[in-house]
Design a binder for these strands. Structure first.
Lengths: 333, 333
DNA sequence: CCCGCTCTTGCAAGCGTGTGCAATGGTTTC
DNA sequence: GAAACCATTGCACACGCTTGCAAGAGCGGG
């Protein structure tokens, strides 16, 4: 019942009347094989349904072609589009994505990395959580490349890809000022992801510099439902905010919906909102959310490029600008 | 630079003062090892940072622990939540998901399956497209299990998981009738996915049976933007539909937004809408979409259960009921 | 005609595991 | 006390592949 019949290079070799090495070389780009043998091998392989065993190949080369994607809450719009972009890029360089979803705990990230090592993954890309330093050291020692996306924390020899969160936050403030808003708020989840915190801090600092007060509210996971709660908290304050910068588009959607439907506020006339990520829903006509775009394709490209191309200096940090997408949720675009 | 230093079972054995087999057995559940040796092996393994090489293990067992997920447009809400559910289930039985995204072509699905075979994946789960019969036969011969989700087409020895699309469509009709709608429409994409077509056909048949006419409109990919176009086409008809059953929640969101914002129609007073999938956005207060829920967790559970537990009869079909989630987009819930 | 060169090919040594087989030592049973 | 049994352990082979090495083939130049 569980007997799997795979055809091996030996059988192909026999059928083609060549040695096993010839078969191997036929399927190894850049190896020395004559046109004639290659043809005969391919013919036999086709007929028998032969496929190179990537496990064995990986065992020899110590390089599996697998790249581990470590991510939590991957059914979230931003995450899933990033995963899509990355796996697409990986395929274009003949690698394949191994998907591991974690809960938010760093422990589960450690486990994921261990698994990656077990599979001799060529690299791991971390989208959520932060592994223990001892594990990352182990990765380095194992020759496993590491990419940290939006983690904003240093790790020996790893590539860090981050956005200019703080700078974006400053621009959000300017946008609100231009719109004539003076009572400002920042809506955040309470998970404390580095990039989210950077947006918050950047916004608060910029406001401080401008001598403006800003109310910060934090609640729950970084999801729509938390946005609902945050809006309820913020919009029932004595001095109702005129503008809310949300750490995230999902939060922003929750805020927008609650402001409009529950509090009957007109956006952007009575309330301006800016989000972050530019998820697909932000462009839907119910939201028309002004937001900062995460350039997922660019991020994916940088990550994969670094994996394939040995890095110049081995640990590198890349910081990408997030463009502001003007839509209808802020006055005076 | 590319030299990876991995620690092998041999080194662990030396350090622990036992044979290499002992190490192997320590990491093989159910193998015969004394408590004492196990302890010493674990200690040495810990100290050296040893991890069983899954490639080598897979090579021996002809079973990699990898399961291939083949999917297109994976950044779509329904798809990504299904992927999440499946990969979660897989992890709970110590398998790991290999993610391959395809374009819509069946050719790319074939390639994906070939890759799965190359990696000696234990199984492949197909969420998009339909592979050529010759390839699926090859999979069977290679002992590779195959799960087809929402593909609604027979394949030798594969597990097919489908919903009762037709029956759901009949219930949609009943819901519209109860709401007093008589001019009905069905909004579909033009990609012709079997499950989407089944919903369309089921709806049209049910309407026929009831002696009601239904306008069918098809356009573009199965996305929000197509919903916008479909609404524009349907709502400018001489006899404006009073109810629209959408093949998909994404389409429904586009339809709803366009009906409300562009055509200033009140939902559900002037227009009733039903969708399919119950994506997260459907519950957002801008939509409050009445829709059929795809039980993604159940689907994932069935798929993975079949993978691990050798099937009773080897090719099986499972058909799952989709529950109607009543929200505000249909009158008289 | 021979030397040296290039291109191709086969041999065989691994890569890091799992596991059948036989040997060992200890324990139970009669 | 001997026989029978069991748990544990080491040996050695197999898994399917890559690749260094050496040998063979073809060929032009001297």
């Amino acid at each position: 019942m569980n007997q799997k019949i795979f055809v091996s290079a030996k059988e192909v070799a026999d059928r083609a009347g060549v040695s096993r090495s010839a078969v191997s070389r036929t399927f190894t780009p850049g190896a020395s094989v004559s046109e004639e043998t290659r043809r005969r091998v391919m013919e036999a392989a086709e007929a028998l349904g032969y496929h190179v065993n990537h496990l064995a190949r990986g065992l020899m080369r110590n390089e599996s072609g697998l790249v581990c994607l470590i991510v939590s809450e991957m059914d979230t719009p931003y995450r899933s589009s990033l995963i899509r972009a990355i796996s697409h890029q990986l395929q274009s360089v003949s690698k394949v994505a191994m998907l591991i979803n974690t809960d938010r705990s760093d422990k589960s990230v450690d486990d994921a990395l261990r698994l990656a090592i077990s599979y001799r993954a060529d690299a791991s890309i971390i989208l959520s959580g932060m592994p223990d330093r001892s594990i990352t050291d182990l990765c380095m020692k194992s020759g496993q490349r590491l990419v940290l996306i939006n983690r904003d924390e240093e790790r020996e020899g790893a590539l860090m890809i981050n956005l200019h969160d703080r700078e974006a936050a400053r621009r959000a403030l300017i946008a609100f000022q231009r719109a004539g808003c003076s009572r400002l708020a920042f809506a955040n989840s309470d998970v404390g992801t580095p990039s989210l915190m950077a947006r918050e801090e950047g916004f608060v600092e910029a406001a401080d510099d401008a001598g403006i007060d800003v109310v910060v509210e934090r609640f729950g996971p970084t999801r729509y439902q938390s946005g609902v709660v945050l809006a309820q908290r913020l919009l029932t304050r004595e001095a109702r905010p005129e503008a809310i910068f949300c750490a995230n588009d999902l939060l922003a959607c929750g805020v927008l919906d609650t402001a409009r439907h529950q509090f009957k506020l007109a956006v952007p006339e009575e309330l301006c909102v800016i989000g972050f990520d530019d998820i697909e829903q932000s462009s839907w006509s119910s939201y028309e959310l002004t937001t900062f775009a995460q350039p997922v394709d660019l991020i994916a490209k940088e990550a994969v490029a670094w994996l394939t191309h040995p890095a110049p200096a081995d640990g590198t940090a890349s910081r990408i600008r997030a463009d502001l997408i003007w839509r209808g949720s802020v006055r005076g675009g």
